[in-house]
Amino acid sequence: MTRAAGVTDAAGFDVLMPMHLRVGADGRVIHAGPTLRRIAGDRPVAGRALFDVVEFRRPRGIADMAGLWRRAGQPLVLHWRGPCRTQFKGVAVPADREGGLILNLSFGIALVDAIRDHDLKAGDFAPTDLAVEMLYVLEAKATILDEWRKLNGRLHSARLAAEAQAYTDTLTGLGNRRAMDHVLERLVADGQAFGLVHLDLDFFKAVNDTLGHAAGDHVLQVAAQAMSDVTRAEDTLVRAGGDEFLLILPGQVDGARLRDLSERLIARLQQPIPFAGEMCRISGSAGIAVSHGGDMTVPVILARADEALYAAKAAGRGRAVVYGDRRVAPAMAGAAGQALPRPDPAGTA
């Protein structure tokens, strides 16, 4: 095609349309463009019947040359017959007076499958074809999507960490008030039964005042560990502030068992805690309330646990009281105030 042979010459057509088929009136392929020859591989198409080489999908019903003639100039969708059923877009135009056709093809939306299946190069496309630019844009898009995905992953992890931090009491590692509100509201909204233990450390202020804040902080951490030891993984432990704790125990609505658990916890808290050569001695009082599932609001169950705690304190500390239970259990470790290492300064015992 170095000289003016004109585009009626097959080599010229090959440059303009590397994916065209020249078909005779008898339906046999006379010539295939170089890219289609590459796709055909070791089963050359020249000489074979067009309808053995490709199958027309849309419009429906193109099964012979007459049918294809009627669709000349219209968009066609077809696919290759063979191991690789590559899909094409196409258009056919009359090539001669005898009834021959030129069918020009492109990959259309099946471009990615086609380059993968046939390992095509930029030179397999007409210089005017936008296929390579489309591949470039697809690759750039994949790269940028990947960057966004990574960024989203980092932001998601950062959000989870920030959320965990926002729900955590940094000193004890237990939940904070925000965690408590969240968990209680969810349990009530879901209508789940749960037990609530409102625990107040006794004589904590005395430790803080006499041995200092470092001792106080240590006591709080030991107390938190004790709570964690007597409860299950699915329970939520909250430091609601100061020396005040809440234990939220899903499914635990048996008052006697909750009192049992609280008494075991109080016994643990009464064990002297060594700190910097000194012994810190505390105790605890617990108020217990249960919700049988959606029967009360969060403020109501909190108020009940609070009321039971008040009753426990009033009855002499070192006790666990279940809301609504008239019988007040005897104080832990014998008579309140006596066996306890530090006398109750307010003298309520």
Binding site: I115, D119, L120, A122, V132, L135, E139, A142
Partner: peptide, 10 residues
């Protein structure tokens, strides 16, 4: 260099 990058592989 292949036109089909790793993104195009199944």
């Amino acid at each position: 260099f292949r036109l089909a990058g790793s993104w195009a592989l199944p």
